[in-house]
Amino acid sequence: MHSAPTWDPQQYLRHSGHRTRPFLDLLARIPELPAIGTGLPPRIADLGCGPGNVTALLADRWPTAHITGFDSSPEMLEQAADYAGTTPGGGLLDFRAADAAHWTPDDTYDLIVSNAALQWVPNHPESFPLWIEGLRPGGTFAFQVPGNFTSPSHALLGELCDAPQWRDRLSDHGRRFVHVLDPAEYLTRLVDLGCESDAWETTYSQLLAGEDPVLDWVKGTALRPVLTTLADDPAAAAEFLAEYRDLLRKAYPPGPHGTVFPFRRIFAVARKKN
């Protein structure tokens, strides 16, 4: 059984511009919330809120909303606490500890949203009926997840974790995301639940700067389980990172303007019928 990875908010935020862009694209496709026009503040849940920077963007779109960010990482919640409190529009931002794998709506929500988190939750589509039940009529469930788990960055990580010198310690840490579905599968599941649904994918050709930028990127996400497992053995961690770095340098050679890192994302928006 895997232990939960230890997260590093500052490492994650090093690429906050690129990481935020898919959420902004998702946000643009979310329809107006049912509470708007009733005089009541919208109620919003953000599953896997991370360091809170994206949760705060929800308050820009719905300034009177009561927004709660949920995350299982104490490190991320400590960072997110900087955003907690009354928002400029008179809404409220708060944060709570919760694991999306076991989260049950504790209120009736206008929007349940998740940004780059459900890939960590095995069998997350099995929770869709419960989450949609927690929406008020006309409410929306929306999420986006990475869809790049067959790309070199992740395939090479999986192969290295399976190599003889690492297999006993790292097991399948590099192959944890096979439960992310294709857009068509998400669409079918959400329509089956009676929702007006849309699902799509986008591949962002991201230009990363600096030395070994792809390694720096994955240190904030896919490498977290490996780094957590090797945390008590700095020499082994350094050896693993050096081997992985060399593989990434071949797979993602720098160009004249930086290193191009294609990044596929999968999106879904489901509106509960009135």
Rank of each mutant, 00 (worst) to 15 (best):
E159R: 12
R175F: 04
P88K: 04
F95E: 11
L111F: 07
W200V: 02
L77R: 10
G91I: 06
G89S: 08
L208G: 05
Y244I: 05
E126Q: 14
R175L: 01
T68D: 12
R271I: 02
A117Y: 08
E185N: 01
P152L: 00
H173T: 09
E201W: 00
L248S: 04
D172Y: 02
E32Q: 15
A98S: 13
S16F: 09
L26C: 06
A209K: 12
R189F: 02
C49K: 02
I112N: 11
L27M: 13
D168H: 15
A81H: 14
C161E: 07
P262K: 03
A222H: 11
T203W: 05
L118F: 14
V178Q: 13
P262C: 03
L230T: 04
W103E: 02
T221C: 12
R14A: 14
L230Y: 08
R19G: 09
T20R: 15
P122Y: 10
P34L: 06
T87K: 11
D216E: 15
A116D: 04
P31N: 10
W103A: 00
E201G: 08
L160G: 09
R169A: 14
H154V: 02
C195Y: 00
A155Y: 04
H257D: 15
D46I: 06
D172W: 01
R264L: 04
V226Y: 09
T150G: 13
R61C: 08
T6N: 15
L93E: 11
G210I: 11
G134F: 11
G89E: 07
D71F: 10
Y186P: 00
R264F: 02
S153C: 13
S72A: 15
T64G: 08
L248V: 04
P183W: 01
V113Y: 11
F263D: 10
L24F: 02
T108I: 00
P9N: 08
T6I: 13
L58D: 11
A142E: 03
M76H: 08
A155I: 01
Y12Q: 06
A100Q: 05
D172T: 14
D25G: 01
P254M: 09
T86D: 09
D107R: 15
T228Y: 07
E243P: 03
P88Y: 10
D168W: 10
P152F: 03
G174C: 07
T55A: 13
